[in-house]
């Protein structure tokens, strides 16, 4: 969520991507902004998550003389270029969490956690193959699954070992009494 990037119109020019903090320091409530998920450009004051931050900003910073707003080109003109940007952000291959699957499998090994470790590694494999065949959404889903199952492997392995260890300690203590 915090990595949401924004674009805004400054003197008729599209500026961005910028973080929300950068955005609110540069714009007025009347500035046109756009971010992924919005169908079109809109005044900053109409976008709740930005408007909230702008209110805080205007109470602490003395109001600045409003610049005469230059004539804006048709708004639809910007949307396609921004959509293109949102595609290029997806050009980074998602993490496959193979390191964590391996660590969880070797360190937290147990008969109950190992199947989850194998599912995690299978999804790690899918991240690469789906990505290389251009299926970016599938690659990202596989990445999420690899992460989820690596965590499940670790938790199941850890819990099994803790229960077994407590059992081992108590039976050891009892037999020594």
């Amino acid at each position: 969520m915090s990595e949401q990037k924004y674009f805004y119109i400054d003197n008729g020019q599209q500026v961005g991507p910028v973080t929300v903090e950068e955005l609110v320091s540069k714009i007025t409530p009347d500035t046109d902004i756009w971010t992924q998920g919005m169908s079109n450009w809109a005044h900053a004051s109409t976008v709740p998550e930005v408007a909230d931050l702008l209110v805080i900003g205007t109470t602490t910073i003395p109001p600045q003389p409003t610049m005469p707003t230059p004539p804006q080109p048709p708004v639809q003109q910007y949307a396609p270029t921004s959509v293109q940007y949102s595609d290029t952000t997806q050009q980074q291959k998602p993490d496959n969490y193979l390191v964590w699957s391996i660590l969880a499998t070797i360190l937290c090994c147990g008969v109950f956690s190992l199947p989850f470790g194998i599912i995690s590694i299978i999804n790690a494999t899918r991240v690469d193959t789906e990505w290389n065949s251009g299926k970016y959404d599938e690659a990202r889903q596989a990445s999420e699954k690899a992460k989820k199952f690596a965590i499940i492997t670790a938790i199941v392995g850890f819990v099994c070992n803790v229960i077994a260890f407590i059992y081992q300690l108590t039976t050891g203590v009892l037999s020594n009494l």
Binding site: T105, C109, G110, A164, F165
Partner: peptide, 20 residues
């Protein structure tokens, strides 16, 4: 030593797991 956790898989089956 009985103060270290033993492998659950080995204890149950007698076979080593990849982490043993």
């Amino acid at each position: 030593s009985s103060m270290f956790p033993k492998c659950v898989f080995f204890t149950m089956t007698g076979y080593k797991c990849p982490g043993c």
